[in-house]
Design a protein around this nucleic acid. Structure first.
Lengths: 202, 202
DNA sequence: TGTACATCAGTGAACGCGCGTTCACTGATGTAC
DNA sequence: TGTACATCAGTGAACGCGCGTTCACTGATGTAC
């Protein structure tokens, strides 16, 4: 039986990797069960032995994407001088670079909506919250007077703002910041915002 | 013949209004041709006498939304003291309020993607560019040393940042700024950013 | 070691639903004489 | 004013495609004796 279980786990991981590749290449809407089955060499219906449904599969891929994003942010955090302000700038730039390098996978994180009645599982929620620790630490150093709740809100605001610049910038549509200028604009905005917040603190 | 033309125009405008109502109530994905036809009291196929296809219809609704947004921003601009910094804050808050009050229609502006081969028509492009004049005027007053190109990029950055806060805030998901705090957070971020940009200018 | 049986992963055709768009046809409206 | 004809908006059934999911069946693998 263990041979069978092993095989099953192998197939399951193949499935998730194939889904990841497919989203990366063709976007979330390009993910099709029949193509997945062909890709991992099994029948249509076998997919449903490996995974509850397509929503679960998408969340599994999302989990992997968040993990890689986490690593990218950790790397950015570690490099260079320890000034908390510049750490935040580096994190923001790293977020931008990650999104650009993993465009479709990163978009899938935000495009995917569960049906109204289904609930996002705990393991997926935990993945998301993890990421805020990158922002929280330097922000706490910069704004020591603020309560944890206030800091949490400021962290979310800052993240949302940077996320917006990245999202519209990478769309390459009319309202977007032109791509070459994007990283510089993000750095400027983060620095300006932080300086403004600190000045306001006093 | 003019009686017929009149009737046709009436039906066409009914169609656009019905589409607007339908998107507002059920979101962009809730827009269905059969429901539209029933709503305006004609057959399925008649819709295609009034409009090229569904993409055009969505863009027409989008055009109306952008027009109302433009009015809302104009109103915000006019009210209160003339300090350019506070004008920008009021515009950002007005954008947030408009999005909250017109949630589905506002989302439709960003969700809608044309198929790769089709081109967004000129009248739709013009609608979008119009809006930036609201941001550009006060920004020019605040940052007089910058060239028009630089100002254009800064305007887009600022817009993207505020848009990101509104978009994630109104999603009400994990990463979002809590809704009651959103307006205050936006005002703070805009003030902090502007102060930071001006300080950097010197 | 060999045989009978049970289990369950794997199969792939078919279900079921949704939905934009087309098209042969109709009937009301307008035009020509 | 009346008749024959042309036009074209309006009709709604049907086309065509996509696609997640189910399900009766099969065959390989493992277990019991």
């Amino acid at each position: 039986m263990s041979k069978a279980l092993e095989r099953r786990e192998k197939l399951r991981s193949d499935l998730i990797l194939a889904a990841e590749r497919m989203i990366a290449e063709r976007g979330l809407s390009g993910l099709k069960t029949r193509d997945l089955a062909r890709e991992i060499g099994c029948a249509n219906g076998a997919v449903y032995n490996l995974v509850e449904d397509i929503d679960e599969l998408i969340l599994r891929v999302g989990s992997r994407t968040l993990l890689r994003l986490d690593e990218a942010l950790s790397t950015a955090e570690g490099a260079g001088e320890p000034s908390p302000r510049e750490t935040l700038v580096r994190i923001a730039i790293a977020y931008c670079d990650f999104a650009a390098d993993n465009l479709q996978l990163w978009r899938a994180l935000f495009e995917h909506r569960m049906e109204a009645d289904k609930v996002v599982p705990d393991w997926s929620v935990a993945d998301q919250l993890q990421l805020f620790r990158h922002i929280n630490k330097p922000l706490t150093a910069l704004l020591p007077k603020r309560s944890p709740e206030q800091l949490g809100i400021t962290a979310r605001s800052l993240f949302s703002a940077v996320h917006g610049m990245v999202a519209l910038g990478l769309e390459q549509k009319l309202v977007a910041v032109p791509l070459p200028a994007l990283r510089k604009e993000i750095a400027d905005l983060v620095r300006a915002t932080i300086d403004g917040l600190i000045a306001r603190e006093r």
